[in-house]
Amino acid sequence: MELDLAISPSGFVFDPRTGATFSANPAARLLLEGMQEGEGLAALVARLQAHFEVGEADDLERDVLEFLRVLQDETLVPAERELEG
């Protein structure tokens, strides 16, 4: 997944295409960094599990997909993009 964002360690996110800025919490920053590295759904879930004490993978998958929809609503990710397993 192509994600052209500047993400600082503090969670400040800048979209160089639109000029929009965002504040990402630690979990969101982790997911954004994973997406930038081209990770699919399973890898993103594993990334969350490795960094946080979190629950079942099924719930996490739903959360990651919901986060993807938020990014698409903000046009940070193209609407037609899907996460591969």
């Binding site: 800048f14 160089p16 295409r17 639109t18 000029g19 800025t21």
Partner: peptide
């Protein structure tokens, strides 16, 4: 009046 009071350079 719609005038920019702050702005940021972008690339597209």
């Amino acid at each position: 009046k719609g005038k920019g009071w702050a702005g940021v350079t972008i690339r597209d």
